[in-house]
Write a protein that binds this DNA or RNA. Structure first.
Lengths: 219, 219, 219, 219
DNA sequence: AATGAATGAGCTTTCATTCAT
DNA sequence: GATGAATGAAAGCTCATTCAT
């Protein structure tokens, strides 16, 4: 009862649940599948139990509430989707390598997020769908974004801006432009039109071009 | 049972509910407010009835199911947000006016959608939140987009592309880039950070600039 | 949300629930019967519904929780068993009537409580059984006792003590002696041995004698 | 299945659980504490296990059901509270000692029960609370009272009645008066107002006086 | 048209008990 | 003997929907 209830602590709680029993893994798999397909509120715990092949009580032995199960499902997605540990490394390299530039950063960054979305499509789908209804999870994601991803993006964008590669726009405004473009790519590719054929390399290149130069023809 | 169940017909159904009684208006207002605040699944019909000041039974006299009430709430938003009747007019003017250009189109278009989002924020919020869980409404919105908005955008973009103002990219790809940028502006402005102060003119100009020229500095 | 949560207010809430629908009466009857026979925790809401001949949901339409149903069942017992409005009148009469004495008071008082217990045996049984487990109801009963019954007993006992009919013992101590004797009579008669034959008049007289003179033989 | 299910046999069962292992002692202690604080139905076996520092399964190794655990907890209280072995000895002494009288008996008797209640408050509390809901335990306690305590009280009261110290009232009626007075003292002291300061000697004397002479002033 | 009491299926959650290790 | 994961029946409660008034 004495623990602080900060987003920081909530995150720790989320992560420490390793050492999963086999049944727990089954439950998580079933929950991900059903939450992604039908949404959190449309999925009953009894359905999850049935699909996981466990008794309903077993779910509640591991996750005290249905909501906690949702958090367990989303925790990795939240952490991994917003917190990118590779950027640190990238910027260091960039400083010491003459041909590293903004394009090259975007290429690495987008392909990395693309790969993550490809591997975690169901979790990402749940995250996008449910975020609106769970203020506590909104708080967590905002926190993680602000403390993990924003500082890194800030460092990179500042670096390239100082080198004259980017317009003289405030960093937050730059991020406000970039993020929807990248998310738009991922959402279209994995959520809205997952079954349509995609030329992924082309779409990624297009997105990078768009972020760098927009749609206008060179005069 | 004889009616075809095409998106076309569904749309007609949605719209024909005009001639609303005062109680119906109260119900719709209450539903919009609560769906937007708490989400469809977290809102009970009894809450709606209480806020609307009617008996619970009255809701079901006008809308046979809760879902139908949702559709009644969203129908105008779907129609008006995706179907823009002004474009036709714009393109005609553009053809006969020498100084109409892509920037000018984007300015009119974005400001028009911006005004709509400002006036219909709750409905737009509901639309974004619930779309994921109601496949039939997804079908409707896809249909409306394809038949109403896409052809108009296509016409405009083709026009400016032929005039050499736009890069030589396929129209669908262009739309795939533009839409997230515009939606990003609106979502950030009205959904994610509605209470923060915004310099709307500046943000709109920035968005137009971004769509036209991206983030890269002029060399 | 704004109402104070004093025992006083809780009592008001309890009482104002008049104008009961027929189903509500059925529910209360069924609840009294089952709570008295098997105890609150051993009685399920579905059992109550079945015995009352209503759907389970109907119970919760009238009483938001099972606990509130318990309170509705006990409210009258609490109010009427502890708060005796006749005492006021008795003391007034006593002052103006030379032959009113302590015995006469006890006779009226005990017979009155006896009649109440006879008419409300199930509720009294529930009250005695459940009091231990519901601190909020303990608070209510303590409050009612202190504000309603104690002042009246105090007045009466002080009156007779001053007239030299009672020993020179502190009033609270007197009450501590009297109450178990009277409760003992009632509990034995209606709870412990309800089916055995009882000579009620004799037992009441014996109890009065005991309270007045104890068990010792006149020397 | 061949054993008779008499109260007699049940008592034997209750008592034979001696030679307790350390874990068993821990379980009993935990159960007493929790049953007393929250009641039998509000205490889960997992809580008991946690407080006792054992696994949940361990409880059921020693006590086949939760109810049996309750019986194991209450058995000593039932036996020791109702069966008083000292009376036998008292009456023998009394017969041969001229100054032993009813007051002196009450003094020894009440102080003895008082000491027991002081040392076993939690068990006594559980006994009072749960008795109502477990008919089989009621049967046991009635049996023990009738076979152990009643005969002894009967012997003592008859003795003093024959010596002219007590009124000419039937022994059962005498017991019906005395018991609530003594229980009232103990319940008030240890259950209802355990934290308030008490002048125990004074209260015991008052109770003895009350049982002997009641509340009326000497003429 | 409007009401709101009544419904009952379905929900999340609890918990005494079992059993493989 | 001891463990604790697993069970599944049953609990309290919610809520969209119906229908007599």
């Amino acid at each position: 009862m004495n623990e602080e209830n900060t987003p920081e602590n909530k995150m720790k709680k989320m992560q420490q649940d390793k050492n999963l029993t086999p049944k727990q893994v089954d439950i998580l798999h079933a929950a991900i599948e059903l939450f992604a397909k039908k949404g959190y509120f449309n999925t009953s715990t009894s359905e999850i139990a049935k699909l996981a092949g466990v008794a309903e009580g077993t779910i509640f032995r591991h996750y005290r509430t249905k909501k906690e199960l949702l958090k367990a499902v989303l925790a990795p997605a939240i952490v991994d989707f917003t917190a990118t540990y590779f950027v640190e490394q990238f910027i260091e390299e960039a400083v010491h390598t003459s041909h590293k530039n903004m394009r090259s950063f975007l290429d690495v960054f987008i392909r990395n997020r693309f790969a993550f979305a490809a591997e975690n499509t169901p979790a990402v789908r749940i995250l996008l769908q449910e975020l609106a209804f769970h203020p506590d999870m909104q708080a967590i994601i905002k926190h993680v974004f602000k403390t993990k991803m924003y500082p890194q993006l800030n460092k990179v964008l500042t670096y390239f801006k100082e080198r004259g590669e980017l317009k003289d726009i405030a960093i937050p405004d730059m991020i406000r432009m970039m993020v929807p473009s990248i998310l738009g790519l991922l959402i279209n590719r994995f959520i809205l039109q997952p079954n349509q054929e995609h030329d992924d390399d082309m779409e990624i290149q297009q997105t990078i071009d768009f972020i760098m130069h927009g749609l206008a023809a060179d005069r």
